[in-house]
Nucleic acid binder design. Sequence first.
DNA 1: GTGCTTGCAAAGCCTTTGCAGGATC
DNA 2: GATCCTGCAAAGGCTTTGCAAGCAC
Lengths: 139, 139
Amino acid sequence: MKVLIENLKTNNLKVTPQRLTIYNYLYHNHIHPSAETIYNNIKEQNPTISLATVYKTLKSLKDSGLVQEINVGEDSFRYDVQITPHYHIICNKCNKIVDYFPQTNLLETIKDIISNETKFELTSSQMYFYGTCEECSKK
Amino acid sequence: MKVLIENLKTNNLKVTPQRLTIYNYLYHNHIHPSAETIYNNIKEQNPTISLATVYKTLKSLKDSGLVQEINVGEDSFRYDVQITPHYHIICNKCNKIVDYFPQTNLLETIKDIISNETKFELTSSQMYFYGTCEECSKK
DNA sequence: GTGCTTGCAAAGCCTTTGCAGGATC
DNA sequence: GATCCTGCAAAGGCTTTGCAAGCAC
């Protein structure tokens, strides 16, 4: 919790109960929740919180680089507290999203190839792999 | 145009002027347009067409696998008539989207690594690389 | 003629905004 | 105390839906 407060302060974000609740939820639940999911799960702990606050908080955290906004092709965004570069594997049966942290050299190889061929100066990337997870495959 | 009609028929889609206009537009303009962009650009050619028809047609084409829906993190989806596996490089200055067709072996390598490590049966993937294009870098 | 498609308007959904009251620092 | 944040309601933007008229086959 101390880290979370530090991170907020470092980014000039006032430390409010709402922000801590949301940030803490993301910090301990790596399920890539949507704003709605976050809202539903923190309501018990903070019954007066509004969905608008969840959105505003997520925007602040995103702008500060404390969370990442990801889009796997659903209608809504999902949020991820992991900021080290990594990719997402999505199960098209249970919609679970799994993190994958690539070997650095593989990632650099890909970036170099693309940079050379397209003459882009690349800054970031998002990779989504779709398929069926082990559990769903067994069913 | 003959190919387009064939493709529609093969997928049990009735060949209407609206569908041909939209499909043909995508076929000849690889700019990954949004529904709105398509609508604005085909209105001259088909002044009575409605935005709802554009959306409905895109849904039909997508469901038949004739076009691909991509999401680069904007508020709206973009559409791509390319169905061979390829990835997208996005310029964060001019928002241009460039296609990149990967070497098959590189793609297979990545898929194999991820499949092994995560035990997913992978079926498809989306990769987005963000950066600055050659023209925008020069400015 | 049957069934799918169009186009209009309305609704739906996710997200943002305006604003007054309240909390943080 | 100044500024930022919250929560409510309303609005905004993209997309879907319902339905009657029209078209493809």
